[in-house]
């Protein structure tokens, strides 16, 4: 295209460019300020756990700590005094077993839903999916009484069973879509070779679900780890309580412990999710995509 260079208004282009640069700089400054505001609570959290109780009371809450040694005392106090140790180990158990078993069961169910043709598929899918649409408040009282009658209240196995159940429906939804899209050539071939339905699932379907399995597992693990309300209702002894429930009870009933210890306990309670986020950011974002779709 032949453009008459002499007729081009360089002034307008330059002004336009300058405006854009100015805008970009404005955006940059604004985002910087916002980021600082967003990070400020983390700063407070970190300087607090680095102070000894005495130092915390004496200094400005945002002042820098004089060293990092009090961190260990705070964490030890949180682990032992607040009995966060129990909570962390319990939640690890509930999260790993609950999420792992749930996603596995969900893949099985999704396999049944997506790869067999039979009437009533929608019904069964809706039945499982109905598990996600009610607010948690509707489960609490019946679960409490049913658990009490069955002797499941305040037991680890009771917690694992419930967490497994509640973590099933969502992965079923995701995996059903995933497995519907997966080509069925391989299973047809396997069936021709006389492969049993059971073996087909374990040696062909399951290995192909590794990616979504990890993403879903992380998502559900995080959910179980962060749960407060079910653990509060279904457990009572500190030996069985989840980490969040332990933290909340600690903050409430033992308020005569220094804030630095409570903060250390909160940090401890968030450590796995923070670690997961940094180590597995890619998977996390993938999990997010999954959950939004």
């Amino acid at each position: 295209m032949a453009v008459d260079l002499t007729t081009l208004d360089y002034g307008v282009i330059a002004r336009d460019e300058a405006r854009r640069n100015r805008e970009n700089r404005g955006v940059f400054v604004l985002m910087m300020v916002l980021s600082i505001v967003w990070l400020a609570p983390f700063y407070y959290l970190i300087v607090s756990v680095l102070k000894s109780p005495a130092e915390y009371v004496a200094s400005h809450p945002l002042a820098l700590p004089s060293g990092i040694m009090p961190l260990f005392a705070n964490v030890t106090d949180a682990w032992v005094e607040a009995r966060m140790g129990f909570g962390v180990l319990n939640s690890l158990l509930y999260g790993v077993v609950g999420a792992g078993v749930a996603v596995f069961i969900a893949i099985m169910a999704a396999h049944g839903l997506a790869r067999y043709r039979f009437s009533g598929r929608t019904f069964w899918f809706m039945l499982i999916f109905a598990g996600t649409i009610f607010p948690f408040q509707m489960y609490l009282i019946p679960l409490f009484f049913t658990y009490l009658e069955l002797g499941l209240l305040d037991t680890r196995i009771g917690m694992i069973l419930f967490y497994t159940a509640i973590c099933i429906p969502f992965p079923v939804l995701v995996m059903r879509n995933y497995l519907t899209q997966m080509s069925s050539e391989m299973d047809e071939a396997a069936r021709m070779d006389g492969c049993s339905e059971f073996r087909l699932f374990f040696s062909i379907i399951l290995p192909n679900c590794k990616g979504p399995f990890i993403a879903l597992f992380l998502l559900q693990f995080t959910w179980i780890w962060n749960d407060l309300i079910f653990s509060t209702v279904l457990t009572q002894r500190v030996e069985v309580r989840s980490v969040m429930s332990t933290l909340q009870v600690f903050q409430g009933a033992y308020a005569d412990v220094s804030q630095t210890v409570v903060m250390a306990a909160s940090l401890l309670a968030s450590l796995p999710t923070i670690l997961l986020f940094f180590v597995l950011r890619r998977h996390f974002m993938q999990g997010l995509q999954v959950s939004s779709g």
């Binding site: 690890l92 158990l93 790993v96 077993v97 792992g100 078993v101 037991t155 680890r156 196995i157």
Partner: peptide, 13 residues
């Protein structure tokens, strides 16, 4: 293996 380990830990009451 991890699941089995965790489960057995849960059972030891």
């Amino acid at each position: 293996a991890a699941c089995a380990l965790a489960l057995s830990a849960a059972m030891t009451v």
